[in-house]
Design a binder for these strands. Structure first.
Lengths: 246, 246
DNA sequence: AAGTGGTCTAGACCACTCT
DNA sequence: GAGTGGTCTAGACCACTTG
């Protein structure tokens, strides 16, 4: 990391703390500072950039507010470790209220196919590029509750094509991190209602055309690239979703 | 506002900026500093509390991050003005995509009734207390799209019981602010799936038992008290809702 | 004890908004 | 030009975590 241009960036009208934040952001999004790792101490950065403590702290505070960094008092500042996925499925209501058991995964299919234009646009790859497609159901209390279709860029996730699905855990995001070095940092979900096709209904042990909730998710890495597209269906009558709005 | 205790609070182990923030929070949540009003300048507060600029700024930053204050460079710091409600209904998809027209309101009923135990618990009043109940539909492109049931504490919202509904605008939150001095600061929504009763279906010009999305909202004022309970129903096939997760 | 982030000071100067 | 919030400095000291 070369600090020499920080002051010249400042001359160009940019704030010093913003210039420093941009440099740190580069270290993070490029992966040179990997998820979960500690970044240099504030006093180290202060000397490296030749600025006052307050300026370094302002830069770090900015990245903390963006969710890229986490401060831990007395220990250091760390690159945000990413989502496990467990917190993203708290929305379906099955069995006991307040029960946050992770549903068991049952992989039905893992195939390679080519991206449609729409999927390619979402994943930021070219139409016709290879993608991995996963079909799985997720079980709670011995019953299939959710049906998930997942698409991944085959190039980036080659380890997911080569490894044995039986060795995967119930949560896929830790697998992405461990096997492919891809950390999911945020996600965007769209909720709609529909009805189940006959094959999907059979997998969920529901009648064909049964009403279902459809949750379409795009998961993004720390650099803001979409890395996974996932469509989840479940019984509409067992669906509830809570959101806080400001 | 008496600043004399700030340093003594500090002695008690609390941080100075936290003690100051607590004082400012009191001015806001009590209504002494009303929504939309400017608070004293940083230099004024600095002198009043006898602390350095950085400490005042840290206190204000805390309240900004809580959504209680808004900074405007060169103009001042203001108490958050509250939600209009327009941003809360961007989620139903009707007509053209990206169209954010505000649906026209049609009041069907405004009655006084008594709170059930559940409603009273939500509104923070005693069971059996008087509440105002409003039934209205909301129209877009000449069609009824949403059916809303709204409950308000009759004591706090007496102006909504006395005024002529024909004089209300399509958005109720500005009416609450203007007529009752109640500002909606945040809201919590739960989404579920259901089917329409015959009377509700008739008002929405849909067949009885038609699938519907049910959005149940609690709206909170700046002090965190629930001031409105609202249940909205609309055609499930026209529903979509997008959320960002971190 | 050493190292980390957190708080606080006192003061200078910059950038934006309004009159 | 006057008043507001925004940036930056140089340094002191506090609170938390780990070896």
């Amino acid at each position: 990391m070369n600090a020499s241009t920080v002051h010249s960036l400042h001359e160009a009208g940019q704030r010093r703390y913003a210039a420093i934040a941009e440099r740190l952001r580069g270290e993070i999004t490029s992966g040179r500072w990997p998820a979960g790792a500690a970044i240099p101490a504030e006093t180290t950065l202060l000397a490296e950039f030749g600025v006052a403590l307050g300026t370094i702290r302002q830069a770090i505070t900015l990245l903390v507010s963006e969710g890229l960094l986490e401060r831990r008092h007395g220990r250091g500042t760390f690159v945000h470790a990413g989502l496990t996925g467990a917190s993203l499925l708290r929305f379906f209501r099955f069995g006991k209220e307040g029960d946050h058991e992770v549903p068991v995964s049952n992989i039905h299919k893992r195939t390679q196919t080519v991206a449609t234009a729409e999927l390619a646009a979402q994943l930021g790859i070219r139409a016709g590029a290879n993608v991995i497609h996963i079909l799985r159901s997720r079980w709670l209390q011995g019953e299939p509750r959710l049906l998930e279709r997942i698409w991944l860029d085959a190039k980036r996730f080659s380890a997911m094509a080569e490894s044995d699905p039986a060795t995967w855990g119930d949560l896929l995001y830790p697998e992405y991190a461990a096997r492919c070095g891809v950390v999911v940092h945020r996600a965007s979900e769209t909720i709609e209602f529909g009805t189940l096709t006959a094959p999907d209904a059979a997998l969920l042990r529901l009648p064909a055309k049964h009403p279902c909730a459809v949750v379409s998710r795009c998961a993004f890495d720390i650099a803001g690239r979409c890395v996974e597209v996932r469509v989840t269906r479940g019984d509409a009558n067992a669906f509830h979703y809570t959101v806080n709005l400001t």
